[in-house]
Simulated assay, not measured.
Amino acid sequence: MQKTILTIAVPCFNEEEVFDQTMENLRTVLCDLMGENLISEQSQLLFIDDGSKDSTWEKIENATLFDPLVSGMKLSRNFGHQRALLAGLEEAVKFSDCVISIDADLQDDTGVIREFIIQYLQGNEIVYGVRSKRDTDTFFKRNTAQGFYRLMEKMGLSLVYNHADYRLLSKRAIEEMLRFKESNMFLRGVVPLLGFKSTKVYYERKARAAGESKYPFRKMIAFALDGITSFSVKPIRLITMLGFLFSVISVFAGIYALVQNFMGHTESGWTSLMISVWLLGGLMLMSIGLIGEYIGKIYEEVKQRPRYIIESNLCKKVGNKSKVHSR
């Protein structure tokens, strides 16, 4: 029986402070799995440098020279976490039976990777790493994250609760996912759409080992908005409903104004006028902005620009591709 060829794909952006620790940790995991005969000796780590400004790529490049288990890719500029991860998946699927994606900050528990492999060997095409609790998050981040999942559910998108991008995908799952051609691929939403047999592995997330978070509040908002507008038209329908509601209200307001005029109470109210102007003005600007988000996505899609550009590829591909098998 052929052993499973595993690639662990790790997107990196300015991770020089934590890279050495991350590489050593994941390398130990790989070696342990090989020692248990759970994966092939041709398995490897794949680090994807997403246009880092520090010495991250130099560290990756050096590691590929001296460690046969390490491969690397360098994107020509910063394309964003999701596209960097997609670049790694698209490259790794060429020579792997399954791929595990994990962030470079070591917050996700690498100890459950063994369970990922066991679940894969039991027939699961997708294995989600799911946080069992969010104690390490601040009160604000914890509640905004929960609000995000609830909002996405109301928008009609089924996400795996408390799951980020720590997951295992089989070769077949990745190949099918790559058939989705949208420019801005929201992986957390696309993967559940594949419909293959899946399971969850729960773990406790740790504090960041070193460095700073690459997802400040601004990027979190942009990420959430990207997810919503990529999978649902309900916000547009909400605007339509609000427009209808305010049209009805305006009819009653007009009737009220006429009645007041006939009764001789014609003095206009400054407060009510200002409230109406600001309320309607704010709603109109918000509506135009939301419609603009959808138009912007259409604009990006029709140009059909590449999702990423690879500047340097140091992947150590499996020599005999016939050894890579899928279910």
Rank of each mutant, 00 (worst) to 15 (best):
I298G: 12
V191H: 00
T229F: 06
C315H: 04
Y308N: 10
E175G: 01
Y202V: 00
K234Q: 10
I117F: 10
D165L: 15
N25P: 02
G282D: 08
K94Q: 14
P216K: 05
F47E: 01
Q82G: 08
G292N: 12
A63E: 07
S198C: 03
Q82T: 11
S101I: 05
Y149A: 05
V259R: 14
V127S: 11
Y294L: 09
S213D: 10
G319L: 12
K133H: 15
N162A: 05
S272A: 13
I126D: 10
K316D: 03
S312N: 10
F148P: 00
V130L: 03
C31R: 14
L89K: 02
R307A: 13
E212N: 11
I5G: 11
A92K: 06
G264P: 11
G292D: 11
K171G: 03
S268T: 12
L194Q: 02
V127H: 14
G80D: 05
M177W: 01
E182C: 11
T199F: 08
K316S: 00
S213L: 06
K154R: 11
Q21G: 07
K206S: 14
T144C: 07
S132V: 04
L290P: 01
M241V: 06
I118E: 14
Y120G: 03
T110F: 10
G282N: 08
L38P: 01
E91L: 02
Y202R: 03
S230P: 07
T28R: 14
V10Y: 04
S101D: 02
S96H: 05
L178V: 10
F186G: 01
M185N: 04
I298Q: 09
A209K: 14
V190E: 13
L225G: 04
M263L: 15
S132K: 14
V127I: 14
M220E: 10
